[in-house]
Amino acid sequence: MKFGILVNEGPFTHQASDSAYHFVKAAIEKGHQVMRVFFYYDGVYNANKLSAPQSDDRNLVKMWGELGSEHNVDLVVCIAAALRRGIVEDNLADGFRISGLGQLTEVGIAADRLVVFGD
């Protein structure tokens, strides 16, 4: 199955991004395709390269980037949501790209299922 993923929360206040990460990982392991993960609302904070969690804690920003590069998953950060939260090319973490909201609609149309993680 072809999945699109929408992540609506940042990596720290909510578990949504962790859950999305584990879902994507499990789906790929099961042989499904994840066409795109779209980061919206505070979800754009998942792409903040300056984020520095304590060393004994998981680092979701890094984990997303690695998962994306390893399995060729398109990690897209919404530009409108990102700009107002100070996520720009300069501090965009590896593996992510910034693009428009149309990319969300597009993956909704192209994928078999769009799975939403957030409140």
Binding site: M35, D74, E89, R97, I98, V107, I109
Partner: peptide
Amino acid sequence: MAETEIEFDT
């Protein structure tokens, strides 16, 4: 932007 835009056929 550094990386290429990926587009799906919709």
